[in-house]
Each structure stands twice: as C-alpha cells, then as structure tokens.
Nucleic acid binder design. Sequence first.
DNA 1: GCGACAG
DNA 2: ATCTTGTCGC
Length: 224
Amino acid sequence: MSYILLLDKINKSNFNQGKIEELYSILPEIIIIKDEPDFNPDIVGSCDVSYRSFAIVSYVAWSVSKRCVVEEITRKKEIPAEYIPGRFALRELPLIAEVLLEISSQIDCLILDGHGIAHPQMSGLASFAGVLFKLPTIGTAKNLLVGEYESPVLKRGEHSDIIYNLEKVGEALCTKDDTSPIFVSPGHLIGFESSRRLILELAINSKFPEPLRLADINARKSSL
DNA sequence: GCGACAG
DNA sequence: ATCTTGTCGC
Ligand SMILES: [Mg+2]
C-alpha cells in the first residue's frame, strides 16, 4: 500500500548498479540529517544478510509500543556484487530493496547493519536506503569505516562523537554496561539525538538493536 | 607507492 | 561476511 512510493522510486531510478553508482555522487546533497516534524516511530524495521555462495536476506519488523516482532521474512537471493569498502550499497542495497517490496506492514524507521553518514561521501548503506525508500534510516556498525572517536565510558547510555574532517558524523554508543560501543550514524530524515535514543531503547537482549539482532540470526540460520 | 578498509 | 575450538563470564 504505502510502498507505491518505493516501487515508483526504484522504477524511476531504473534501480541497478549503474544508477547506484550515479547516486553516490549526489547523495550528499539529498540527505537530510534532521528529524521529521512528528518523528515518533512505532514500527522499526531492520534487514541483515548472510553471505555464502548466495545471499540470505532477512527482514524483521519490531513494534516499539507492543515490544514484539510484528513481521519477519527471509529470502534467498543471488549476490549482486562483491564487497568493496565504501561501496557497500552496491552489494547489499539491491537485496534489501527486493525484500522490502514483499512486506505488507508499515515502516516508520529502518535500521541497517552498516553506516549512515559516517562514510567518505556521506553515502553509507543507511543513507542510501533512506533516500531510495524515502524513510528515516539509522546506520549501526560494529566497526568504523572513517573517522575517529574517544571511547565513551562503558556504561549503558554513554556516548562520544565520531569525527571525520572536523565534522560530527555519528556516535560511538555504549548500549550495554561493560561492553564495547557500537557505531551509530543517522542515514536520512533523522538526527543524532533520535538515532541514539532509538538504538539505545532497542538494545534489549544484546548491545545491538533487537530487530537487527533477530534479522542477523534469521539470515544466518537460514544460510546453513 | 603504502596502508586503511562498514559487511 | 566467512573460515573455526576453546575459553572466560553472566
Ligand atoms: Mg550484516
């Protein structure tokens, strides 16, 4: 229903490797790192992929108000491209797009495994997804691609800025006591504050946001 | 040219 | 990401 926009955008963009490559250059001008007027997400979706000789993509939708999974699907796909640091969207975005086209429930915010604007050209996977799908997106990564940070105190809720070219591009966020921080960077249509708050709130059974943790588990077990 | 390098 | 056993800790 609400994915007519998604379908439309993908068709207009003639979604393919070439178009993604084109978008890498103009994405910085399109990205909006600011909350939408009444940003208060309930359905938070997340996607993750397990790679073998093929790819297993899993999508999990989590309801913040109900505190439970409201939808989840897993699909086997062909791997679109090899992994190249800084060009992750070429590999994972096509897979995510295909799976999102199949879901029926709404998505108020999408959390992805990778960076948002904490990228050389502010074009991390999450930023790419946000622009293409016209959705608020947050990038959550285990490691840094670019930038520097001072480790925050290892206490849930503590955080420090990730600085790249003298600019703040994200935060190292401790989501669990005595556990190494995860890197959070807004992708599109959301700010640093809301990104941090949502990720922290969703870090329930691990240091990672619940829907992403579950998508990772689903994808991995289905790839065996 | 060397080293760094999301997943 | 994946290849892989044990080990430390809650
Ligand atoms: Mg992943």
